[in-house]
Design a protein around this nucleic acid. Structure first.
Length: 808
RNA sequence: GCGGAUGUGGCGAAAUUGGCAGACGCGCAGGAUUUAGGUUCCUGUGGGCAACCGUGCAGGUUCGAUUCCUGUCAUCCGCACCA
């Protein structure tokens, strides 16, 4: 019989409808027999349509989920929308569309496109961060943070975009430019809600160590945390007459250079400056300098690496605690108030930054480690690698640095002038934004009771409707303009109070969402504890790498906190996190919605169908690699699927045939492993090789076809469902992953490479059952160059190679 | 500057623990079918006439290196006045 040609449009629609109705991808809580497996794709940022980048992460996750279901797992593979944030608010500002409607439409859109792609999400678990049923629990988590002392409000200098009228995190304004509008960012004093993330630094490092993730991603997380071990040392501050005034703490990782200290430098913000006001003879100058630094943005301060600014503080000196020698005190804006103690001991001979500062301000230098310091500092890496000897360092002079360092540490501790400390560059998380479209803080300010948290039973505190999404002229959130929202009663004393009008950052909702999927409709807990326990950590989490460092660290932070308060059963949200590469356009640039030559997956689906779109993109390159998109080569996939379709006309026989048993078993093993590793490109290649073999032999048996279709289904769910139904009269999704048998993986006859002196001479076909002597015999017979007397040595690796080393 | 990753045909790319480099696909060339174009099918396809040479470059270890080691260059990413 000649089968009619494959109509992908009709067939793909047919199966979408069936899956919609039968819901075969439902995850079952507490399944009595099947083990659980949790596959997660980062949820959709609601901004428009699906783009190619989404396919890069969703399709491998979908293939894995489908594979695991065949293998007998109860798979949780959910999806949702990350909906609070700028796209919705920008759309509201530009077009007047209500952000709620924008989000509702956007989510509907991407969900229907996901179904079109054949993504086997459990759509009944779809969540959306801007849905009050969801953000109720984001607010609840904030209340717990507040209750447990992990959230606090403090005046601070924040990055502020005058154009967007909002504060920005350091990450949101890299390079001193606003991520959103590209405008110049300034420093502004505001009340800031901080979450005590810094306190979790070591725990986060533990999470980073335990998760399975690419090394470069782990490394950037470790950089972000920035752990550094050193010493905190007290330098007494004295006046002209040597009278002790205060103590200055400095942090250093190079205690071995302490005898070379020639000045100390304080961050301009350091509060000791105020305490010493009466002793500083040039306090007017000092105040002026402090004012000037405030005006300079963080970015300017950091980028002005060459032109160091600073100011000598007159009338006050520091004493080196080991020598009691007086050194000068400077204010310098290269010293960061937020790192270490906000003060440093400066050793110009051994730190290039101090060296340049000393040159500029004519501060003397003392060399304490051997090396040439005439033109630049001899820095740590250099003197450590050479294990240089100390000099000008009292009893330590002449000692190699590696011996001297522990002794100096010991001395500092014994003299009780310092201790070992660990510092982190990670900061507490500034957690409020002056935006409309975010979670309101469940907090009120009462003139009598101060900051008061809402009662948990009053959650969610819903976002009031408005059509004015702009902050006011002071940069306060749009919510501050809505008096019915702002004015309220204090939950504690019942008198008039005012609500917090800032909202939470976009990151809030995404910092716990994987937990909600385990129990998305629960209205008395963020998720039932037993369900959290049942589904456990996410086994495989796919998604892009763009915001991965921060997102995953925030996720670790909240998971640790929730674990500590008993709300979740584990410290580790994810077992394995896989960052996908980018899709590049024909210019080699990241393909995005805005790029002019961006190709929409919908366009590809429309022309070729979802199965082809899924397979072609992933045949182009590996999951973690950047993939240059091209239509070129797509015919390789279409013709492959055409050949698969035609298998229906090639069925001959029932059971697996001897001629195909090796190929089929190898295929099952290879493709299964590839799904597990998200290596779709090599899985596709293996499937093609199998089809090639079938076509050479001009037949496939029924059982071979059955197994082949199951193996292909995770990649091409539509066509395989259709063929399966036509041939076997039932639904492929109810089948099990075929088992392979080790004994069929290797053919008895195989080509053994024979080398002479490590160079390939010939490939001989032999039986796997032969032993070395027999193989040597065959090789010698076939290769005339090998003569008995010449053989010095034979290296034989069974199944791999035989190598004859001959006398020259 | 520091840290990480990656360098393989004309192109996208493969290669368990060190064991036939270039699987698979595209493209290209030749042939068959076709009135023709397209489709489909077959054959060939790293370079070189050859011996040989080939995985960024130069060394090293090894019977044997894309794989391990040392140095070096290039590209990409992350961090960056962090004391």
């Amino acid at each position: 019989m000649a089968t009619e040609s494959y109509d992908f449009k009709k067939t793909e629609q047919k199966w979408q409808d069936i899956w919609e109705k039968e819901k075969p991808f439902k995850a079952i809580d507490f399944h009595p027999t099947k083990p659980k497996y949790y596959v997660l794709y980062e949820f959709y940022n609601i901004s428009g349509n699906l783009h190619m980048g989404h396919l890069k992460g969703t399709v491998p996750a979908d293939a894995l989920a489908r594979y695991k279901r065949f293998c007998g797992y109860n798979v949780l593979f959910p999806i949702g929308g990350d909906a609070f944030g700028l796209p919705a608010e920008n759309a509201a500002n530009k077009t007047g569309i209500n952000p709620r409607d924008f989000v509702a439409n956007g989510l509907k859109n991407v969900i229907s496109q996901s179904k079109k792609l054949g993504l086997s999400f459990d759509y009944d678990r779809t969540i959306c961060t801007s849905d009050p049923d969801y953000y109720k629990w984001t607010q609840w988590i904030f209340l717990q943070l507040l209750k447990h002392g992990k959230a606090y409000k403090q005046k601070g200098y924040v990055n502020y975009c005058p154009n967007c009228k909002t504060t920005l995190s350091n990450e949101d304004c890299q390079g001193g430019k606003c991520d959103r509008c590209g405008g110049e960012v300034v420093q502004k004093e505001r009340w800031v809600w901080y979450l005590k993330m810094k306190e979790y630094a070591d725990k986060l490092l533990g999470n980073v160590d335990r998760i399975q993730m690419a090394e470069n991603l782990k490394q950037s997380q470790r950089n972000w945390i920035g752990k550094s071990e050193g010493m905190q040392v007290e330098f007494p501050l004295v006046d002209e007459n040597g009278k002790k005034l205060e103590k200055l703490s400095i942090f250093t990782t190079c205690i071995e250079t302490i005898y070379g200290v020639t000045f100390v430098a304080l961050a301009p913000e350091n509060e000791l400056v105020d305490k010493l006001k009466n002793h500083i003879s040039n306090f007017d100058e000092v105040s002026l300098y402090r004012e000037q630094t405030k005006l300079r943005s963080e970015f300017e301060r950091k980028s002005d690496q060459k032109d160091k600014t600073g100011l000598l503080v007159k009338g006050v000196y520091a004493l080196n605690p080991l020598t009691n020698k007086k050194v000068q005190v400077f204010l310098a804006d290269f010293v960061l108030a937020g790192y270490g103690t906000g003060a440093v001991m400066a050793v110009p001979s051994h730190d290039q930054r101090d060296y340049e500062f000393a040159k500029k301000f004519n501060v003397p230098m003392i060399q304490v480690l051997e090396g040439d310091v005439s033109n630049q500092a001899v820095e740590k890496a250099e003197y450590l690698s050479k294990n240089a000897k100390l000099m000008n360092s009292a009893e330590f002079s002449g000692m190699p640095v590696k011996d001297a360092k522990p002794k100096i540490i010991q001395k500092v501790i014994q003299m009780n002038v310092g201790k070992k400390v660990t510092n982190y560059s990670i900061q507490d998380w500034p957690f409020n934004r002056q935006r409309y479209w975010g979670e309101p803080f469940p907090v009120v300010f009462c003139p009598h009771c101060g900051t008061v948290a809402l009662d948990e039973k009053d959650l969610p505190l819903t976002l009031p409707p408005t059509n004015d999404y702009m902050p006011n002229e002071h940069g306060d959130s749009p919510l501050s303009k809505i008096s019915s929202f702002v004015n309220c009663k204090c939950p504690k004393c019942g008198r008039d109070a005012k609500r917090e009008t800032d909202t939470m950052p976009n990151w809030a909702g995404s910092s716990w969402y994987w937990l909600r999927y385990t129990d998305p409709h629960n209205d008395h807990a963020l998720a039932d504890f037993d369900k959290l326990k049942y589904w456990g950590s996410v086994d495989c989490y796919t998604g892009g790498t763009e915001h991965i460092t921060r997102h995953v660290l925030y996720a670790f932070f909240w998971q640790n906190f929730l674990y500590e308060i008993g709300a979740v059963p584990s410290r580790d949200p994810f077992v394995r996190k896989m960052g996908s590469g980018l899709i590049l356009d024909d210019q080699g640039k990241k393909m995005s919605k805005s790029s002019t030559n961006g190709v929409s997956p919908l366009e590809v689906i429309d022309k070729y169908g979802s199965d082809v779109a899924r397979m072609h993109l992933h045949f182009l390159g590996g999951y973690e690699d950047n993939t240059p998109w091209t239509y070129q080569g797509i015919t390789g996939i279409t013709s492959f699927l055409d050949k698969v379709w035609l298998l229906q006309d090639m069925i001959k026989g029932e059971q697996v045939s001897n001629g195909h048993i090796h190929e089929l078993n190898s295929l099952i093993k290879k493709v299964g492993q590839d799904y597990e590793d998200l290596h779709l490109n090599t899985a596709i290649s293996a499937l093609m090789i199998f089809i090639k073999k079938i076509r050479e032999d001009k037949f496939i048996t029924k059982e071979e076809l059955r197994q082949f279709l199951i193996v292909l289904n995770p990649l091409a769910p539509f066509i395989t469902s259709e063929i399966f139904e036509r041939v076997f009269g039932r639904n492929i999704l109810n089948e099990s992953w075929p088992k392979y048998d080790e004994k069929y993986l290797e053919k008895d006859e195989f080509g053994l490479p024979v080398q002479i002196n490590g160079r390939l001479a010939k490939v001989v076909t032999i039986s796997r059952s032969l032993d070395q002597t027999e193989i040597e015999k065959i090789a010698k017979k076939q290769i005339s160059d090998i003569k008995n007397g010449q053989i010095l040595k034979v290296i034989y690796v069974p199944g791999k190679i035989i190598n004859f080393i001959l006398k020259k």
